[in-house]
Simulated scan of single mutants.
Amino acid sequence: MTNVAAPLPLAISRPLDAPRAAYALNDARRDGAAVPVSGALVRSVLRSALHSHGAAAVEPDGTVVFSFGPTASMLPAVLGPVYRAVPCEWPPRTPCCALCGHWEREHDEPGAPTACTRYRLSIGPARFAVPEHEGVTYAWTRRLGRTRVRFEITEPTGAFPGGTLMVRRMPAPGDGPYEYAKHFLPIPRDRRTAVLERARRRVHPQPCPA
């Protein structure tokens, strides 16, 4: 009996190699529900990943797997997020923009760059936020369209002696209880004080937490 090897993913280099109308997108490193998004959003994010010298491949079932270059090259074992976009059905009652192909609710999504003339992202002032858990030195939020983005500077650890800057999109009303994305950026130990001072200067209103 001859063993037939499973087909290998095919490396891709063009956003158009992700042609489906809708995908369920998630971070393959984390346990969490995949988020239905438009194919236009996947192609937009894939374009950014490839521009950053990331890697991308499509599996035989049409699943697109990709990562961002600089993030993956710094600390592959810790950072290096790998995203999976699995083809899925178009959710009912989901209007699509005729100009850019994004779903209308994705126009205010900061992780989906688009040149659509209807895309007008209003960026609100940075505002202090109370840390939600231990290990966070300073936190703030910004409003980007209908999206709220949370920034956190974490405490130094053995793996990250200067701490990290963590950024995540908070669910908007009607989005459901998921985090769309989370980004990590290590802070060099010798720049930690400067990063904290700069963050506190830019946050409005400026608090003076103990």
Rank of each mutant, 00 (worst) to 15 (best):
D190Q: 11
V82K: 15
A115H: 08
E59R: 15
V195Y: 04
T154S: 09
V203N: 15
A112Y: 01
A18R: 11
R146K: 10
A112D: 02
I12N: 07
V65M: 12
A57T: 07
V35W: 06
L79C: 08
E179S: 10
C88F: 02
L196S: 04
P188M: 03
R29I: 00
P207R: 15
T2N: 13
P60L: 06
T137Y: 00
W103F: 11
W103H: 10
T164C: 14
L196Y: 05
V35G: 01
L79P: 11
P7T: 08
V78M: 15
A34C: 12
S67C: 11
L79Y: 14
R43W: 00
A126N: 06
Y180N: 06
F160N: 08
A18E: 05
A199K: 11
L46N: 02
A77T: 09
T2Y: 10
P188A: 10
V203S: 14
A181S: 14
A181H: 11
C100N: 06
G80W: 05
A115S: 12
V167E: 10
E104H: 13
A40P: 06
H53T: 06
V37M: 04
S38M: 05
R142S: 08
S44Y: 03
P209Y: 11
P205Y: 03
W90V: 04
F68N: 08
V82R: 15
V4G: 05
R14S: 09
G162K: 07
P95Q: 11
P15F: 01
A115Q: 10
L50G: 01
T71V: 09
P110H: 13
H102D: 02
G135L: 04
K182C: 01
H107S: 09
D31H: 14
M166T: 12
S67A: 10
W140D: 01
E89Y: 08
P207F: 05
R20D: 04
M1L: 11
P91I: 00
A40C: 02
G162Q: 05
P188S: 06
L75Q: 13
E134A: 14
D175W: 07
P87K: 12
S52R: 12
P205Q: 05
A129E: 09
S73D: 11
Y178L: 08
Y83H: 13
P87E: 03
V78D: 14
S73M: 08
P15T: 03
P81Q: 04
I123S: 13
T157S: 12
F128T: 02
R192I: 00
T117G: 07
G145T: 06
P76D: 03
L196T: 02
A11S: 08
R47P: 00
L16K: 14
R150I: 00
T141Q: 15
T137S: 12
T147A: 12
C116M: 10
C88N: 10
A11Y: 03
T2S: 14
A159V: 07
A139K: 13
Y23T: 02
P177N: 13
P76W: 06
T157A: 04
R198C: 00
P161D: 01
T114A: 12
P173N: 15
L25S: 02
I123Q: 13
R43Q: 03
F128E: 07
A6T: 01
P70T: 07
H133L: 04
T2K: 15
R198T: 00
D190W: 01
F151C: 07
P19K: 13
L50N: 04
R127K: 11
Y178F: 10
S122C: 01
A49C: 09
A24W: 04
P70H: 10
A139L: 10
E59W: 07
